[in-house]
Design a binder for these strands. Structure first.
Lengths: 152, 152
DNA sequence: GTATAATCATTCGTATACGAAATGTTTACA
DNA sequence: TGTAAACATTTCGTATACGAATGATTATAC
């Protein structure tokens, strides 16, 4: 029994890693044709969905540390894809926006990415629902473990 | 329809990213108590499962570039957890082994990691099987897309 | 109203992570 | 034998990624 459990655990962790890697690799391939990296494309997407967002909220939304996102934004600003402003009424925060050029890159790369992923459309929707449900359960469990862990 | 598909795609990609992140975060938390990083623990695990493996095969097994693994091994050798040797009969390759100290760290960190993940045991095995099956289908699709992609 | 706390972003040091180029080894084959 | 080809690893440059320290600004306490 123990052996069985151990093997499955290993299998589960690995498969998540593998799928995530493949998704990310594809996104990176797409985006590098448009002169940006995978994370940069993901950042542009997040900025489109939440215009005028600040850096902290953006980092939280992307599940990254704010120091990481600070660097990503820096390179995007240098590439003139993102506009970074400090509003006069509150000079602590940032306001981040896509530039014209940023929107064009996003549109091109994102539509190419979605086109390449369109092959996933003929997967069984019911099976996918079960899968997503299982993911949510796993997420809940892991978050619980993590939080208990941090209280020690 | 289109909107529906798009939303689900986003949801799917995100959930993989999220679960993978949580697994990795937990592994990192565990391993840092034993003075190693998450990747270093994963490397020690791989070396236990395949003793005497070379760097190239190790990288392939871990789905990383060999230049990345070269650096990881370098730090593990410096920490005296791994032994790196060039056999006399073929000085091109490396032979990597766990040191005594490496085995101790691995044992401690890995058992702690598995203990923390034991909460996943009471998930429905059938549901997990469906999930893993879905993962395999997605992997197959994505690998196909990737390979077609590289031929262009 | 100024001292202090709280908040938000950047910088710093270290560790991944990748591809390309360089390096060192071995094999092929002319 | 000598040189090209193939192979395995390392080095280099750039981009993540994190936590801790720092800096800058605003809010709060008194």
């Amino acid at each position: 029994m123990n052996t069985n459990t151990e093997i499955e655990l290993h299998e589960i962790v690995d498969s998540f890693r593998e799928v995530k890697q493949l998704f990310f690799q594809l996104m990176s391939d797409m985006s590098c044709r448009f002169g940006v990296t995978g994370i940069q494309l993901m950042t542009l997407k997040a900025l489109r969905d939440r215009p005028e967002i600040g850096l902290g909220d953006l980092a939280e939304h992307m599940r990254l540390g704010s120091s990481t996102v600070s660097g990503v934004i820096d390179r995007l600003v240098k590439a003139e894809l993102v506009i970074r402003e400090r509003p006069a009424n509150n000079r602590r925060v940032l306001v981040l926006k896509l530039s014209e050029k940023g929107e064009q890159v996003l549109q091109g790369a994102d539509s190419a990415y979605r086109q390449y992923l369109s092959g996933l459309n003929d997967l069984d929707p019911e099976e996918l629902q079960v899968m997503l449900q299982a993911h949510r359960k796993i997420i809940k469990k892991l978050e619980k473990v993590r939080d208990e862990n941090h209280h020690e």
